[in-house]
Design a protein around this nucleic acid. Structure first.
Lengths: 158, 158
DNA sequence: GTCGCTGCAAAGTCTTTGCAGAGAG
DNA sequence: CTCTCTGCAAAGACTTTGCAGCGAC
């Protein structure tokens, strides 16, 4: 494992870093740091899911009912974050676009088509092969996503 | 005896097979085999691209101007084909869903985030690892999809 | 104070649906 | 003949945009 951080408090430290990077990014582009933008970043960070704009908006309304954050702001902020490569959007086949923070450790997904459960995994061998393939095809790799669809152990029992 | 095909004339044979499978599928579900459905399947088969519903509709209108195929029929047929696992859809970047025939040999995708071009590849090693991972996690693998995002060679030149 | 930002609602896009006539089985 | 399909247009769903007031700097 090449993870040299302590697990303890890792999450908070990473968030502070992320937040300050974000502030700097805003400053560089003459953009303003607003509560809404912070809440959106924070909510993305605290979610282990890949969120649709709508789901994200809903989460924010639940946690911050005082802030009447509009869906339009969520869209606008997500577009901003995506342009800045802070988040990436992916699709899980079915429908719609889902967003996740790009800063988190990379992982792939096993998706149960019965119960919808998502299990994450990382495989070094696959990561290596992906880089090798991208190199061969002279492709400058930025990110990747992989999903394995099937039936999880629990659902097989049924 | 599965997958014992010759390479010779494989493409045509495969299309005939695909077509007859499709007819059987329709029959099983009390659905009708119409010109529109055939043309859509054929166009998908003959395209090396991943097509958006709109692009597919456009192609069909060009090749079969006599048949005034409506966009609604394209959507309806694509939904049918996707439900039946004849085609799979892929979403990427900015906006839109693209479809491709699932019956072709399995492959993964390199997606250029600049120009949207999709390049296909197959890697045995990755396929093997995926099966190994699914086995380890007692996951009954049905399908998978993998996308590598980045910048293609042409776009890097700019 | 100056601009950029926000919420709202209206306007766009893309996709789906209702319907009456056309066509496959 | 029956019942599904189709094209058309209208309706929906999801995103983006215009605007006037608000708020970060």
């Amino acid at each position: 494992m090449e993870n040299v951080h302590t697990d303890f408090n890792d999450r908070t430290i990473a968030y502070k870093q992320l937040l300050s990077d974000f502030k700097e990014l805003l400053k560089k582009n003459n953009l303003k740091f607003t509560i809404q933008r912070e809440v959106i970043l924070e909510t993305l960070y605290n979610s282990d899911e890949h969120l649709t704009p709508e789901a994200l908006h809903h989460l924010i309304q639940e946690k911050h009912p005082d802030l009447k954050t509009g869906i339009a702001t969520v869209y606008r902020t997500l577009a901003l974050l995506e342009d800045s490569n802070v988040v990436t959007s992916l699709s899980f086949g079915a429908q719609g676009k889902k967003y996740e923070l790009g800063a988190k450790e990379h992982h792939d997904h096993l998706i149960c088509t019965e119960c919808g459960k998502i299990t994450e995994f990382v495989d070094e061998e696959i990561e290596k092969r992906q880089h090798a393939i991208a190199d061969t095809l002279k492709f400058q790799m930025k990110d990747h996503s992989m999903q394995i669809y099937g039936v999880c152990y629990e659902c097989q029992q049924k």
